[in-house]
């Protein structure tokens, strides 16, 4: 652990004052084992209180603080200063409208998530006991249950930047979570939704989403599994 001086370049935008975004640079003193979010807090708390960004759990499980750090999507609470260096640039995630500083409009993202019917659909009365599911069946969708809806994947996707009607990786991940759940009955409906123009076929397997995911979900693989399920009509 060592104290380090960090130069933070932050893309700022205040809709009440600015016509367009601009960069501001701040010098802050932090420990090298601190998180990037700690450095952002230092800016906010002791340099410029007008700087706005979302955060909550600050340990990578709530998904509030996805941002572009040194050019790549990440959660500010999962990256440590010693891993990103002492010159850090921070800007809002791309593809969603910027409201103020690092705060973007998340509504389009959640609308796309909602479009894939992200809830268990099963019309049979399960009775008073749990539905049975083998550990093997449970494992089929384990990876995609990890999603925290931070939008790091979707907003790293070059296809999404160019075409905002594309549902994006996060929505497909959450569709996958139900399509491959043996208890669910609406897989065919979700495959129909994802077979449309705005669905999985927009994906060009650039792997940006997989690289951006702070939960290490194998997103590209999940998208490929959905594509195969559509092609071969098999879940």
């Amino acid at each position: 652990m060592a104290v380090v001086d960090v130069e933070l370049k932050i893309k700022r935008y205040n809709p009440e004052q600015d016509e367009k975004p601009h960069w501001e640079t701040y010098e802050v003193r932090v420990e090298d084992t601190d998180r990037v979010v700690d450095a952002l807090h230092e800016v906010k708390w002791h340099h410029d209180g007008t700087f706005s960004f979302r955060r909550s759990c600050v340990h990578g499980v709530c998904g509030s603080d996805a941002m572009v750090i040194n050019g790549s999507n990440a959660l500010a609470c999962v990256l440590l200063i010693k891993d990103v260096g002492t010159k850090i640039s921070v800007e809002p995630i791309r593809g969603l409208p910027v409201i103020k500083d690092l705060v973007v409009d998340m509504e389009p993202f959640f609308d796309q998530y909602k479009s894939v019917l992200p809830y268990l659909i099963n019309s049979k009365d399960p009775g008073y006991e749990e539905r049975k599911q083998s550990p093997e069946d449970r494992a089929r969708f384990d990876d995609t249950t990890k999603c925290i809806l931070c939008a790091a994947c979707t907003t790293s996707c070059p296809v999404y930047w160019g075409n905002e009607s594309y549902v994006g990786p996060a929505a497909i991940v959450n569709a996958h979570r139900f399509i491959f759940d043996s208890r669910d009955e609406a897989g065919a409906d979700r495959l129909d939704i994802l077979n449309q123009r705005s669905g999985v076929w927009r994906c060009r397997t650039a792997f940006s989403c997989t690289e951006a995911c702070p939960r290490d979900i194998k997103i590209t693989q999940a998208i490929q599994e959905v594509k195969r399920a559509i092609l071969y009509n098999r879940i």
Binding site: Y119, L120, P126, K132, Q133, P135, R138, F141, D181
Partner: peptide, 20 residues
Amino acid sequence: AVIELEHFGMPFNRTPEGRI
């Protein structure tokens, strides 16, 4: 409450027999 969560879709870990 646990059974209801399972019916809601909660992905509990399972025993070899498929129970929670």
